[in-house]
Structure formats: C-alpha cells, structure tokens
Design a protein around this nucleic acid. Structure first.
Lengths: 220, 220
DNA sequence: TGATGAATTCAACAAATGTTGAAAATTATC
DNA sequence: GATAATTTTCAACATTTGTTGAATTCATCA
C-alpha cells in the first residue's frame, strides 16, 4: 500500500498522445481534438493542464530532453574519466549516440515517438531552431569542445560542419520515415536499432577524421 | 515583338509563393489564403489552376524534381563515360551533389526554397515517404547501382545505410534551419554554398569507404 | 459529513480553413 | 468587331480550429 500520491494519469496520457501525434504529423498537422480523442479526455483538459497549443508542444519536447541530455553528458564524462581525459573520437561519438540507442532498446514506445519528434523538429526551419537551441545546444557545445580537444589542429569550421553532417545522419534515422526500407526493398529497416549505430559510428568517425585530421592537400 | 504566347504569369506566381511558404512552414503550416496573398491573387485561383491543396503541393514538388533528376543523371553518366565505366567514389558522390550546388549558385531564390522543401519532406514521416519515393527513388536506385558496382565486395546493407547517412547529412543542410550558424556563433553559414560541398563530399566518401570497403574486423 | 479546492466535462464562442458556384474580366478565334 | 473560351474575382458555404467560462465530478481533510 504505497502512500505516495500517484501522478494524475490523464495529464500524462495527454502528453503521450501529443508526443505520438506531433511526431507523426508535426505541430500544424495535429489538432487538439485529435490529441484529446487519442488520450480519451476532453479537449478543454489540454488547456487546463498545459495552456495554449504551443506550450503543450514545448512541454512534450522538454520532457525527455533533460533525461537524454543527462545520459549523454554522463556517457561523455565516463569516456573522459576512463581515458585519462583523452577520449578517442570513437568514444566521443559513441557517448553521443549510445544513450539514444539504450532508450530505444527499452522498447518504450514513448521514446521512439519522442526521438522521431526530435528528428522532425531538427529539420523544421522556422521555430524548430529556437527549441533545438534551448534544449540541446548547451550539451552539443560541450561535445564540440571535446571534439576540439581531441583534434586541436583542426580548423574549427570543419568540426562544426562535420557535426552538422553527423547531426543530419542521426536525425534522419530518428525520424523513422521508412524510406530506407522501401529503397532497399525491405533489406534494411529503420527499426533495427541493434545494428544501426554500429554502422553510424564508424561512418561518422571516418568523416570526422577525413575532414579534421588531414590537410586539405591530402591527396586524391 | 515576340509572337509566342507568354505563360500565364499568375499560375507561376502561385507556384513560387507556395514553394517558399511550404519550404518555410510545411504543408499544414501554410494556408491557401496565405499563398494567395503572397502571390497577389484571389484564393479561388489556386483551386482553378491546381485543384485541391495537396495537388498544389505535388505540383510544386514535382516541378523541379525532374530538372534536378536529369542534371544528376547526366552528371553520373558523364562521370561513367570519362572513367571508362569505372567512376571513383568521389565521382559518384560528386555527381549526386554538384548539380545541387550548381542550382544554388545561380542565386535563384526559387531553387533555394525548393531544396529546403525537399529537406523538409525527406524528414517528414507520414506522407513525405510517398512523394520522395515517386520523385527521387528511381534516380537514387540508379546511383546505388553505381555504388554497388564500385564496391562489389561490400554488403549491400551497408551501402544502403551509408546512403541513408549521406541523405541525412545532405537534407539537413538543404533544410536551411540556421542551426549551425547559431551553434558556431556565426563561424559557419548554411548559405555558404561555395564550400559546403567541398566538405560534404570527403566526409561522405570517407564514411562509405570505412563502412563498405573494410572488413568488420578491421581494427580499433 | 460537509466544505474546500482541484480535476474534468459540457457547451459554445469567434475566427480561420478548404472548397465551390456564379459573375465578371480578359483573351483568343473567326 | 462579335462570339466563344479561358482566366480571374466575388461572395459565400459548411467544417474545423483553438480557446474559454460555467457547470459538474472528484479528492482531501477538518
């Protein structure tokens, strides 16, 4: 007989339904009534708990961002600790990706939806920028510092660009568009979380090395 | 005194306005009245020329797809011809990217908007899939065949995944989110089309090499 | 039990949306 | 220059949208 007050389940059902629908259709493609129906509550309850629509979206977006940021930061700190402050490129990139994989491997539908949502927001030109900046850029800046330290001779511009390519490769995969499945005629599945990061990490690391650790005149 | 009948300018103004607004806000974030106002025409004209909203979007999306596909195919054919049917990895990747750069370098606002729109659709889970598939996958399949031929010993799965990462890196950059500018504090600008492909090509080529041309047990 | 406050639903609002049919204007054809 | 066809606008429609205030249910606790 636990004596804690269980959190109001309906407000969480709203957030979960909103998470899924926003991930599928984006901000403007979702109606408050659609969320309410999916959550099995009245429309007015959304306003009662979370205010206007945009505020609801922000709550959904921030809810798991902090958890993910903390997991990533811990992974980076651990990599730095276990390497005497000199983590390898693989370790840095892995610290950025493996926590995501861990959350996906739990099978939690919510995390899958959330990560697809991040993929969506990251590619959304107008107001995705503000939200990505506020919720992720502090941590990203920390990772980029680690990259700069790992490659002190690299042109910072190249590190930023390599990160941009890295970020694009990641977020497209998170977005769960199903395109690679169709393109490969079922040979590859985006849901194959077990192996995708085993491929993404070497791909990205090789790109970083080429871009940041070789001189431009390095050969054909 | 030219005797050709000039194409109805208003229907093109509609397409251009729609192109820009869809690229900025996505399908559901744009209203027909917003497009009509931006184009300086009446709302009903959109239905008259292009039918329902989704049809208008498809026209916008297909309009430049064929041009881009043709330019890319020609670039690939040229690379194959100039190499005796054995283009290098750099040549294949360049044939995929340089035509995009060429269109961007013309300074044509329409192409910039269109390419941002492609970036948006590519990351959009639900109905982006169908449109990307119909308009781009035939050409993409052709490129993947060239990649397979270039790396005959590679596991096809790895080629598809490497292409997925490639595609993500490209489309995030096309999406023009402005994020890298903010992250790098103005050091890098997405609009710097002159140099971004000079970096993207070696990044991607190195990733392909690592993933598809080395044995999995290849070293730490 | 009864009273207080929070959580939830009901009903409805004004505004905006996609779409359409008829009228007006423009262009092409003879 | 009259007629037909195309293009464009006008005005309005039925829905849907986000949002809100009042009413109702539920939980807490003296």
């Amino acid at each position: 007989m636990p004596d804690y007050t269980p959190p109001a389940p309906k407000s969480e059902r709203i957030l979960n339904a909103a998470e899924e629908l926003f991930a599928l259709h984006g901000f403007d493609g979702v109606t408050l009534r659609g969320i309410a129906t999916a959550a099995g509550v009245d429309v007015a309850l959304l306003n009662y708990h979370f205010g206007v629509k945009k505020k609801l979206f922000e709550v959904v977006f921030m809810r798991r961002a902090e958890i993910l940021n903390e997991a990533r930061l811990n992974a980076l700190l651990e990599a730095e600790a276990s390497s005497g402050g000199r983590p390898s490129l693989e370790q840095i990139v892995s610290a950025f990706l493996r926590p995501i994989q861990r959350f996906q491997l739990t099978g939690d539908e919510g995390w899958r939806n959330y990560l697809a949502l991040v993929g969506w927001v990251n590619s959304s030109s107008v107001w995705g920028e503000e939200m990505m900046h506020k919720s992720f850029d502090p941590l990203v800046t920390r990772f980029i510092e680690a990259l700069k330290k790992n490659m002190p001779d690299a042109d910072p511009q190249r590190i930023y660009w390599a990160y941009q390519f890295f970020s694009g490769a990641l977020t497209l995969t998170l977005a769960q568009t199903g395109r690679i499945g169709r393109l490969s005629d079922g040979l590859c599945r985006e849901s194959d979380v077990e192996t995708v990061y085993d491929l993404m990490i070497p791909f990205v690391v090789a790109g970083f090395r080429k871009l940041c650790m070789e001189h431009p005149e390095g050969g054909a």
